[in-house]
Amino acid sequence: MKLDIFEQVLEARTQRKAVALVTQLANGAQRVVARDHAADDILAHVLDEAFRFDRSGVHKVPEGEFFVHIYNPALRLVIIGAVHIAQAVIPIAKAAGYDVVVVDPRGAFATGARFPEITLHAEWPDEILPTLGLDQRTGILALTHDPKIDDPSLHLALKSKVFYIGALGSKKNQAARGQRLIGAGFSESDIARIHGPIGLNIGAQGAPEIAISIMAEVTRVLRLGS
């Protein structure tokens, strides 16, 4: 790998840009293809799914045999609500490779003592979320139960390309939230992007089991697409 190609791969990672390193196995020729420009590549027909499902692999086409190495940005989980369930989600998310960011304007919740070793923003979501660059490798969990905090977060999440949006709350609360979102101008299909009640139904009891059900659902959406 030539130095400039290697530097492009490293730079893409720093900037949270998805790229594929394409290597022609017969002669070692390499190119870096940005996800945004994948449609122009001779491997366009495989790149889209490869990026979506984070799937590197060898592809044979008339032009030769190519290894497509997907370098997607690190997975990231933005948690709204520095609450008890967030504390249970974080170790599982970190073990699965996510960078975790917690946002909660309530200073009493968002303390370094309660949330060591993660990025913590004691600010309102509508101030901080636009600065984070919500992208296709990011998932958002709204965990506060408080519409004043969760709703603005969901508005921004629905306007972004995040791969997963989940919101804590009973079916009744979800219905009320849906009505508020309709009132705010969102469509039924927008609202259908929100997973709520959050998590796979595994009969979870207590924060640790709820955290497992949430991360199981996040994983299913990431890997299977729904």
Partner: peptide, 25 residues
């Protein structure tokens, strides 16, 4: 990056910076 460990590329970059000759598998 399923399968990729970002620390491996960091190590490769560091070794190159140190003037070592490096291969990537």
């Amino acid at each position: 990056m399923a399968g990729s460990d970002p620390t491996v590329l960091d190590q490769a970059a560091q070794w190159l910076k140190d003037g070592r000759q490096v291969a990537l598998a």
